[in-house]
Simulated scan of single mutants.
Amino acid sequence: MTASPSTAQTLTARIETLYGHPLAALEAHAEATPHDSMLAALLGSLADLQLAERSITFHRDRLRQLAHPDRSIEAFDAGHLLDNARRISEAVAVRDAHTKTLSAVLQSLHRIPVPTSEPAPAPPPVPAPASAARTR
């Protein structure tokens, strides 16, 4: 069974499509430019999203270890179980917040078509409105 792509992978693909370059090239470009750009903001939020996803995976795996059926649960373990469950909940909330924000920003951004070397034809002239006849 293949794993479905993570939210971060899906949003990474959308960023790469928007900017027309792979993530590594975008990160290199963002490091060389001022950090007050939209690209830097997107990459920062993406990094936070990836961290949240890694945290979910780590604490989920740790929770599975602690709650393994062959393992006895003592009073000391109960605190660890509760702590890991709380950390998973926090990481899911962080992931969802970053996903919502990144998705909204990416939805509002569109790739601008590359201008052609030929100028666009000028629109036809609009006739001037007829002047009202003056009466004396």
Rank of each mutant, 00 (worst) to 15 (best):
M1C: 13
M1A: 15
T2R: 14
T2M: 10
A3K: 11
S6R: 05
S6D: 02
T7I: 14
Q9L: 02
L11D: 08
T12F: 12
A13H: 04
I15D: 02
L18E: 03
L18I: 03
Y19C: 09
G20K: 06
H21W: 15
H21I: 12
P22Q: 10
L23F: 04
A24T: 13
A24D: 10
A25N: 06
E27T: 11
E27K: 12
A28Y: 02
H29L: 12
H29Q: 11
A30K: 10
T33A: 13
P34M: 07
H35G: 14
S37E: 02
M38R: 13
L39G: 07
A41W: 09
L43Q: 05
G44V: 10
S45A: 06
L46G: 04
L51D: 03
A52K: 01
A52Y: 00
R54I: 05
S55D: 08
I56P: 00
T57R: 15
F58K: 12
R64T: 06
R64V: 00
Q65L: 14
A67G: 05
A67W: 03
D70S: 05
D70G: 11
R71Q: 09
S72K: 06
I73N: 01
I73D: 00
A75L: 15
F76H: 05
D77E: 09
A78R: 15
G79T: 15
H80R: 12
L82M: 10
D83E: 11
A85R: 02
R86S: 07
R87L: 14
R87C: 02
I88T: 06
I88N: 05
I88W: 02
S89H: 14
E90T: 13
A91R: 02
A91M: 10
V94F: 10
R95L: 13
R95F: 11
R95T: 07
D96S: 14
H98K: 01
K100R: 14
L102N: 08
A104I: 07
A104Y: 03
V105N: 01
V105Y: 04
V105G: 00
H110N: 08
H110R: 10
I112A: 09
I112L: 12
P113Y: 04
P115M: 06
S117W: 01
E118L: 14
E118F: 05
E118P: 05
E118N: 13
P119N: 14
A120G: 10
P121H: 07
A122M: 12
A122R: 09
A122N: 06
V126K: 13
V126G: 07
V126Y: 07
P127G: 15
P127C: 15
P129V: 12
P129I: 03
A132H: 06
A132Q: 10
A133G: 08
R134K: 01
T135G: 09
T135Q: 10
R136Y: 00
